[in-house]
């Protein structure tokens, strides 16, 4: 059985370091499999967060050879044979232990977002929406909340003082999705400019690059939000958008 050299971060809020391990691996394995094998055979208390192991839940985010990725979707054959693979926790959030971080910042931001305010239904009590009007929002709804975009966002990563007034890319697409939702009637422009702080984003597209769901976070989400803020809030344009839906490409 081939083996691989691993450097895995071990530690907690008080500090830590990379430790070296050599682990057996089989064909087809992903990094998460190697971490599990390490747990079962050499480091039983190695902390890592995971659930679905199929790229659907977004729990196992880590920085692998310095790159933010999902451990469950990173195949071992991506690396050159003989290469040492380093696995570290996502750096932006406070460390709990080993590969597990405290991502509660994201849950606090989520709670601040003004929810859907529903328009009245059709006469039969239900709603109609055209597929072409929801394609764009369905793209945003693919988000698995792995928070890799939040991890690489310069505003969150490097500016502790701005975190309070900045929601981050995950929540910009959430806001964009609500804003474009054909059934929604709420005006969130004050929130987007204020508490969410969309103006702080300088469109480096780092978030888009790391998105495992390949959501066009910047182009389809953040830029339209910024344009809206730059246009100023025009209630007539806004109403028209609500009724016509978002058909522009």
């Amino acid at each position: 059985m081939p083996t691989v050299a691993m450097q895995v971060f071990r530690g907690d809020g008080g500090g830590g370091e990379f430790k070296s391990y050599r682990v057996d691996f089989d064909e087809g394995m992903v990094v998460l499999d190697v971490i599990h094998r390490l747990q079962a055979t050499q480091a039983r208390d190695l902390a890592c967060r995971w659930n679905c192991k199929a790229g659907k839940c977004g729990s196992c985010s880590a920085e692998i050879n310095g790159k933010p990725r999902l451990m469950c979707m990173t195949r071992m054959n991506l690396f050159t044979p003989g290469e040492t693979i380093s696995v570290a926790p996502i750096r932006t959030f406070p460390l709990i232990r080993d590969l597990v971080t405290d991502v509660s910042y994201n849950y606090e931001k989520a709670k601040q977002i003004p929810p859907l305010r529903l328009k009245p239904p059709e006469t039969d009590g239900t709603y109609r929406m055209m597929q072409e009007d929801i394609d764009r929002i369905q793209e945003f709804h693919k988000c698995i909340e792995c928070f890799l975009c939040q991890d690489v966002c310069h505003v969150i990563r490097d500016h502790e003082e701005l975190k309070k007034s900045f929601a981050g890319p995950r929540f910009f697409i959430k806001l964009a999705g609500l804003d474009m939702h054909p059934l929604d009637t709420r005006d969130r422009s004050e929130f987007v400019k204020g508490q969410a702080g969309v103006g702080l984003c300088n469109i480096t597209k780092c978030c888009t690059e790391v998105c495992p769901e390949h959501i066009h976070i910047t182009d389809n989400g953040i830029i339209p939000l910024k344009e809206r803020m730059a246009d100023g809030f025009d209630p007539i344009v806004w109403l028209l958008r609500k009724f016509r839906g978002q058909r522009k490409a």
Partner: peptide, 11 residues
Amino acid sequence: KSLLGKAHTVM
């Protein structure tokens, strides 16, 4: 047991 939104339903 997990973070909110990660339960098995997600799969």
